[in-house]
Design a protein around this nucleic acid. Structure first.
Length: 451
DNA sequence: TCTGGGGTCCTAGGACCC
DNA sequence: TCTGGGGTCCTAGGACCC
């Protein structure tokens, strides 16, 4: 527990924010569901693929070997040869999330869902006396942990950060893992902590911002606090104010309860192919799967969208990088200063069409974009997304007879796919698709029937 | 042998309309 | 003749989060 001021000096702030962050979440759920995985180093993968994929989560046991979320599988295996790989199952995790959210919402209606394994809870805390106030908060946090253990599962643990705003609550939650409980009581305590963490130890400063700050001679929060607001504003525009506030532990953002959250703003899918390809036929097949998935999600949410974004990532290539990319004079004994850096170049474009939630319409647009931007080089990843979303209204859907027929067919397809799984039934054009992958994967199911 | 996949927000410039 | 201003839409691209 960190407290900057003495008990008597505490100023009343009725709102207190808890950040609840579940530890090694996907891995913990797998261990909860399958007792044979408990106590063992496991890594949750994105599916059945082993190539060109990364770990979605690592169990606490795996983390002891240095295995981390986001790590490539071969890398993780190298660190921990006994790593057990478990294919991820998002429905399972979502189910578990619903259960812990139900528990948390009993403490306060101000519950913001931040991600599948993270949320903010705003509670009232009116005790004037610091000590009794702190003990109340700690009691609540411990009670939450206990209920989750009892009602969701003993392997599901969380770290809780408590503070006077979201930024500091999240920071507090990140300080002690797993199963931590940290309180950052006030701005004085916040500064104390900030001066002891790295710039990118806070939510909102990533590698790029950190590098830009470093280039300005700023390497820690103490130095950031000394930077004049004008300097930050001129370098980072409006984000300069955010950085200025961060260094002082200030954050005005509100806890937005789930029932006040806006609808999604975009829906997209991307897919990394397990080999590099320049086959238009293969690329089109993948686009077709991606756009069908997007369209089904739109229809499930009763939405239509009109801006289509399509982008791809080129195959890995080596480039000589900047000034380091020189070969030395060649004098004997002189170190070769040839630095090779790998680069993934991406390329994309977006266009706006008429509102739609039809897979083939989205495909047409995506394919058109792809043709315009593709330089015929081999690619490793392709993605599509749709934005500018709106609820379906008679105005934004065409009422032409052909379209009406199409809507009826689509509805029937959705119904069957909902029941039996993605791509059980597909449009005729999909049935001629070439088999791209040897391993089963969500984009190419073998359960295909002709209508 | 080589880094996934789902999102959000912000900025800036151009086109176009009134 | 020659040019303001507000507003909206569209697009590109960057940065961040989990």
């Amino acid at each position: 527990m960190v407290s900057g001021s003495s008990g008597g000096r505490y100023t009343i702030n009725n709102k207190v924010i808890l950040h609840i962050d579940f530890n090694s979440y996907f891995a913990a759920v797998e261990q909860q569901v399958n007792p044979r995985l408990r106590g063992k180093p496991i890594g949750v993968t994105g599916g059945d693929r082993m190539k060109r994929t990364v770990l979605g989560a690592a169990s606490i046991e795996a983390k002891r070997f240095g295995v981390k979320t986001g790590m490539q599988i071969w890398q993780a295996k190298k660190l921990c040869p006994g790593l057990i790989l478990v294919p991820g199952d998002s429905d399972k995790y979502l189910e578990c999330t619903k259960r812990f959210l139900a528990i948390l919402s009993s403490y306060s209606p101000y519950l913001e869902v931040f991600s599948i394994d993270e949320c903010f809870l705003e509670i009232e805390s009116s005790r004037k006396n610091l000590d009794s106030r702190l003990s109340t908060l700690v009691t609540i946090a411990q009670d939450i942990k206990k209920r989750i253990r009892e009602e969701v599962g003993e392997w599901i643990t969380c770290s809780i950060g408590i503070s006077y705003n979201k930024l500091m609550a999240k920071l507090a939650g990140s300080l002690y893992k797993p199963n931590g409980l940290v309180v950052i009581e006030d701005e004085e305590a916040a500064k104390f902590i900030l001066d002891r963490i790295k710039l990118d130890g806070i939510c909102g400063i990533g590698p790029r911002i950190k590098k830009r700050l470093n280039n300005m001679g700023i390497f820690n929060f103490k130095q950031l606090r000394q930077a004049p607001l004008e300097t930050l504003l001129s370098s980072f525009k409006s984000y300069g104010q955010t950085l200025y506030n961060m260094a002082r532990g200030i954050d005005h953002s509100k806890v937005i309860p789930f029932y006040e959250k806006e609808e999604v703003k975009s829906i997209g899918h991307r897919y990394t192919i397990d080999h590099d390809t320049d086959s238009p036929q293969e690329i089109k097949q993948i686009l077709l799967k991606l756009t069908e998935l997007i369209a089904r999600r739109l229809r499930a949410k009763k939405l239509v969208g009109k801006t289509i974004h399509c982008w791809y990532r080129e195959a890995f290539s080596f480039h000589l990088r900047g000034s380091e990319g020189r070969v030395s004079s060649g004098n004997p004994g002189e170190e070769m200063r040839l630095h090779l850096g790998g680069v993934f170049k991406s390329n994309g474009m977006q266009i706006t069409i008429f509102y739609t939630n039809d897979g083939l319409e989205i495909l047409k647009a995506a394919w058109k974009i792809f043709h315009q931007i593709w330089d015929k080089d081999k690619i490793r990843m392709i993605g599509v997304s749709i934005s500018n979303l709106q609820p379906i209204t008679p105005q934004n859907l065409s009422l032409l007879e052909d379209d009406q027929k199409q809507i009826i067919i689509t509805k029937a397809l959705d119904k069957i796919n909902d029941k039996y799984g993605e791509f059980t039934l597909q449009r005729g054009t999909l049935l001629n698709s070439i088999k791209v992958y040897r391993k089963p994967n969500p984009f190419l199911s073998d359960r295909r029937f002709k209508i």
